[in-house]
Every structure is written in structure tokens, then in C-alpha cells.
Amino acid sequence: MINDKYANKIVDIIQNFARKSSLWVVAYGTGCGAIEIPPTMTSRYDAERFGIRGSATPRQADVLLITGYLSTKTLKRVIRTYEQMQDPKYVIGFGSCTINGGMYWDSYNTIKALDQYLPVDVFINGCMPRPEAVISGFIKLQELIKEGKANGAQKYKENLEWYRENQRKVIKNWKMPDYNW
């Protein structure tokens, strides 16, 4: 009964619905894009309608929102934050800086493509994306979760060697704890 195919399917549907309707975003703003989050969360755009809520620590969060450029120093903290989050977890790349570097394409201290270092489920482009775009990105993520396609965390685990290699290339002095998640 427990391993019954249909029973598992029903459990999956319920779980995916619950995960979709309750997305907790870890309150960690990495770049200038973090200023778009307060209007998204407050009265004007009210992201709480869709069950999107801020959470204070990575332990409680589901979504890691990379808001804008990532300097190598911040990347170290972001990787640690990401690895402390509990499965299932999702990453949203926010702004053109996470896609191809944006206006920091020639900077000596910012990475240019986020998906080389962390698995990204949804990209929101724009510089900056307005709150409408942010909410539409979240709804896209909800659709992916509902269909069971938002499996970035699984990708990260399976290709951990490749991601680690890229991360070590940027972070020269690698002093990170190992998480056995």
C-alpha cells in the first residue's frame, strides 16, 4: 500500500500543491535588486496573495532569490546559504546581472553567469525587473513546481563535482564547511 504507484502519485500531487502555494523566500538581498522586494511584499503588489512570504533564516526557506550582481565575496556566502537550506529548494536569478553580467560585465569582482555556480530554476530578466515581473517569475516557478519540474536542487546534487569545480575557480581560498544534506 505504501509503495503503491497510485498512492505515491496522490501524495506527490498534494505535496506539490502545498509546495507551490507556500514559497518562503530567504531574506537575503545580494545586490541593488533587493530594493524591488519591499514593494513586491507590501501593499502595492502584495505577494502574500500567492503564499510568498519572507523567512528570516535559510533553514526555514524554500526560495533563494539572487537579487542582482554577485561579487565573489558574496558568492561564498550565497553558496553557504544555499547549502544550509532544506530540500526542496529553488533558486531564482533576478536581473540581467545573473544572466550575463549586465552592466557589470567587465567588472573584476563579479561573476557573470549565476547558473555556472548554482542551479537556477527561473531567471527574471530586466535591470531592474519591476515587481510585476518578479511576481510573474514566482508564478512561473509555481507552475514548474506543480508540474514537478523545478528540480534544481537535484541537479546540484547530481552534478556537485562540476559546480564545485566552477566555484573553486572563483573562490580561491576555499574554506567552506561540508554540509551532508
Binding site: 544572466i99 550575463n100 553580467g101 567587465d106 573584476y108 557573470k112
Partner: peptide, 11 residues
């Protein structure tokens, strides 16, 4: 930046 960071084509 070109040597140290991955550059996505298209720029």
C-alpha cells in the same frame, strides 16, 4: 574578467 569568470556569448 574574461580570464577568471565565465562569459556567456551574446555580448
Amino acid at each position: 574578467a574574461g580570464e577568471h569568470y565565465f562569459t556567456r556569448p551574446g555580448r
